[in-house]
Computed example of a mutant assay.
Amino acid sequence: MDTATRAYRDGDLGQVVALWNAAGIARPWNDPAKDIAFARRDSHAIVLVAETGRRIVATAMVGEDGHRGWVYYVAVDPQHRDRGLGRLIMDAAERWLVARGVWKMQLLVREENVAVRDFYEHLGYRDTRTICLQKLIGDAAG
């Protein structure tokens, strides 16, 4: 069966959240519905899905900040791994950014996730030897 990528649509939430949980990328401190709504609020970000039949089998949330592109929530259904879906969804993310004039794409990988690091390195991503610092602000700082 063919797999195609497309933008997230209303009604996809249940499948996407189930996929993120199955793929192990959901975190209890991140509300998936809130993150998706935030990404969809304007034209600076998009949630992409790969669909086989009517089943969502991969996702990527992509955004740009005026200087570089970022990708988050890259997930492939564990039952559909090793079929090129990770590459497919990352290619779609890169195309979306290139179409917007973005020439630099970044992502965050947990240090202990060696298999995922190897996947991204195989796609040409490199460790920039930078440190990501974070501060919760606004209502999140509560």
Rank of each mutant, 00 (worst) to 15 (best):
88 L>P: 00
105 M>P: 05
84 G>Y: 14
77 D>P: 03
48 L>E: 03
101 G>N: 07
105 M>E: 10
124 G>K: 07
21 N>A: 11
98 V>T: 05
118 D>Y: 04
71 V>Q: 12
140 A>F: 00
26 A>I: 01
52 T>K: 15
137 I>C: 15
26 A>D: 11
119 F>V: 02
86 G>W: 07
107 L>K: 02
70 W>T: 03
61 M>R: 01
73 Y>G: 13
36 I>L: 08
139 D>K: 00
92 A>P: 06
103 W>N: 10
29 W>E: 13
65 D>K: 07
139 D>H: 04
71 V>R: 03
129 R>F: 10
81 R>M: 02
93 A>K: 03
125 Y>V: 13
135 K>E: 01
106 Q>L: 09
124 G>P: 05
33 A>G: 08
72 Y>Q: 10
43 S>Y: 03
70 W>V: 00
75 A>N: 12
56 I>T: 00
111 E>C: 01
8 Y>C: 07
124 G>Y: 08
73 Y>I: 09
119 F>N: 00
133 L>W: 15
63 G>I: 00
18 A>F: 00
61 M>Q: 09
90 M>V: 14
37 A>M: 10
24 G>E: 00
45 A>R: 14
100 R>A: 07
32 P>T: 09
125 Y>E: 06
82 D>L: 05
76 V>W: 03
114 V>I: 09
22 A>R: 09
128 T>M: 14
28 P>A: 13
71 V>S: 15
33 A>K: 11
23 A>Y: 00
93 A>V: 04
109 V>Q: 01
99 A>L: 08
126 R>P: 04
53 G>N: 03
91 D>L: 10
113 N>I: 04
15 Q>M: 15
40 R>A: 14
51 E>T: 14
50 A>C: 06
63 G>P: 02
105 M>C: 12
55 R>C: 02
6 R>D: 04
5 T>D: 08
20 W>K: 06
129 R>N: 13
125 Y>G: 04
45 A>F: 12
116 V>W: 01
48 L>G: 06
11 G>C: 10
6 R>E: 06
83 R>K: 15
69 G>R: 06
37 A>L: 11
60 A>D: 11
72 Y>A: 09
3 T>D: 12
38 F>R: 14
51 E>A: 15
115 A>V: 03
54 R>T: 07
111 E>D: 11
96 W>V: 08
93 A>E: 02
88 L>C: 12
10 D>T: 09
141 A>E: 00
33 A>V: 07
138 G>T: 01
50 A>S: 02
100 R>K: 15
42 D>W: 08
21 N>Q: 13
55 R>W: 03
114 V>R: 10
38 F>K: 11
31 D>Y: 02
103 W>E: 10
32 P>A: 11
108 L>F: 09
70 W>F: 01
82 D>M: 13
13 L>K: 12
35 D>Y: 01
39 A>Y: 07
129 R>L: 12
122 H>T: 10
104 K>W: 04
98 V>W: 10
122 H>R: 12
127 D>L: 03
35 D>W: 01
121 E>M: 08
115 A>Y: 00
138 G>A: 06
